[in-house]
């Protein structure tokens, strides 16, 4: 049928360091989003930002930093700052479920790790499925929202603008 039904929460192939490159330059202007959950909400981020998805490695807490900075982790020999995205998005602190994953994302000057409750799937969406976040303006966390996606008939999910939220937090 179509991708309406195809959404098994298989995260297998994504746990390795490299994600499949965005499918070349086909005549396909659908954009890829990596979807994940925090609490009972589903979010998505631009797939191009995500360099790697890993199981949470041991975290070294860094004293005297804001609570959304969980500490530092070692990713392929480099020291990477780990953030609790749930805390930033207004959920409680991460409960570290077994499904928790760290997304290693590219920020301006560094790579940072973002802790989420679970990674669910990669969705490719037609631009028409995206509603500008402005539709939610007035909502408390609207500045974090870039789009609301309505994948044909499926449940909607929020596409967050990591650049904006993290950029703010990392200054």
């Amino acid at each position: 049928m179509s991708d309406k039904l195809a959404a098994p929460p298989s995260i297998g192939p994504l746990t390795r360091e490299t994600l499949p490159p965005p499918q070349g330059r086909q005549a396909d202007d659908r954009q890829g989003f990596l979807c994940f959950t925090i609490g009972d909400e589903e979010y998505g981020v631009d797939l191009n930002m995500v360099r790697q998805i890993v199981k949470p490695p041991p975290v070294a807490w860094v004293p005297r930093t804001p609570s959304h900075i969980l500490g530092v982790i070692s990713i392929r020999g480099a020291v990477v700052t780990l953030l609790d995205l749930g805390l930033i998005l207004g959920h409680g602190p991460c409960a570290w479920p077994r499904t928790a994953r760290v997304l290693i994302v590219d920020m301006w000057e560094e790579q940072v790790g973002v802790l989420v409750d679970a990674v669910t799937q990669v969705r490719r969406l037609d631009p028409s499925a995206l509603e500008a976040g402005a539709a939610l303006s007035g909502c408390a966390r609207s500045e974090n929202v870039r789009y609301v996606a309505r994948p044909g008939g499926g449940a909607l999910f929020t596409i967050v603008d990591l650049d904006a939220i993290l950029g703010e937090r990392l200054k």
Partner: peptide, 23 residues
Amino acid sequence: SMGPSLSSATCFSGATDIGDQRL
């Protein structure tokens, strides 16, 4: 060295690997 996001943590000059992926 730690990333610029931790530049405010001035009391640490960086992190070091102590095995098992721990820092």
